[in-house]
């Protein structure tokens, strides 16, 4: 049941995008998302779409795989669209229930833009996670945030925690599935009943899950210590981050996109 979520899970293949430095992808994604909020006309979105299409094409991740992951957030998308569609004041086009609910020209425009923005935002950020191993990603983050060390922010520890959390998510999801089935076999009911009952029904699921998570954490800490882990000091890197020529080209493309997108999009 829970294993169907593919949103943002690393897709293993070898492409130019996969090989880019994670810092390029992190920075690029951030700038791409910011750029979406500057657009005020259709052209901005067209350029963003073209840029995204280029990235997807280069990444060789099947478009269907990306769309499949989007299903998880379809509900959120529909609600946002509905809100904007019905609640934006302006020139009414159609109205129902004696004018209490109406759709305006501005509402449609806004709903379309919001929907596009949301879709691009999600596709854009999942392009990053689809093409970058979580370890690589945390490495990139660690290096980008290194200046924060001056302010006593435990950058390495946070990065290590993130990467471990990511490794254990699939394991814990599978475990949740198993515990759920086992409790259903004992007559537990996770699907019906009122909110309070449902919340109560989660106890037989959550208690074993937490205990298991703690046990795993304990085991893992032991295993890490046994392999000489002692924090970030004096640690070597198996895959040190060094900018390549392709990263320079990628930054250039990003810059061009930003100039074109924001320049035209704000006209």
């Amino acid at each position: 049941m829970l294993r169907d979520i593919t949103l943002g899970q690393y897709y293993q293949t070898d492409s130019v995008i996969h090989r880019l430095d994670p810092r390029v992808k992190l920075g690029g994604t951030l700038l791409f998302i910011i750029s979406l909020f500057f657009f005020q006309n259709m052209w901005g979105y067209v350029i963003a779409a073209a840029f995204l299409a280029l990235v997807i094409h280069l990444s060789t991740v099947p478009f269907r795989y990306i769309v499949k992951g989007m299903r998880a957030i379809l509900f959120l998308l529909l609600i946002t669209v509905a809100f904007n569609l019905f609640l934006t004041p302006g020139t009414p086009l159609v109205s129902f229930f004696g004018g209490h609910v109406r759709i305006t020209y501005e509402g449609i425009r806004l709903a379309v833009f919001i929907a596009l923005r949301l879709c691009f935002l999600i596709i854009g950020s999942s392009m990053m996670t689809l093409t970058t191993t979580p370890n690589n990603l945390t490495d990139g983050m660690e290096k980008m945030l290194r200046p924060l060390k001056l302010f006593k922010v435990p950058v390495h520890e946070v990065a290590m925690m993130m990467s471990i959390a990511l490794r254990f998510i699939p394991i814990l999801l599978e475990e949740t599935d198993k515990i759920m089935k086992a409790q259903i076999a004992r007559g537990a009911d996770f699907e019906s009943g009122k909110l309070v009952q449902r919340a109560k029904a989660m106890v037989p699921l959550l208690v074993p899950l937490f205990i298991s998570a703690f046990r795993r954490a304990n085991d893992l800490a032991l295993a890490m210590e046994a392999r000489c882990y002692r924090g970030g000091e004096g640690r070597a890197k198996m895959k040190p981050l060094i900018y390549q020529k392709r990263d320079g080209i990628a930054y250039l493309c990003l810059g061009l996109y930003l100039v074109a997108g924001i320049g035209i999009g704000r006209l």
Partner: peptide, 26 residues
């Protein structure tokens, strides 16, 4: 009745007796 692998991972109540009661209570 189906008992899964590592069934002890599904124990959750405060004492043994209450845990065994979970099924029939349901």
């Amino acid at each position: 009745g189906l008992v899964f692998q590592y069934p002890e991972h599904q124990l959750f109540e405060i004492d043994v007796f209450s845990d065994v009661c979970f099924g029939p209570k349901n």
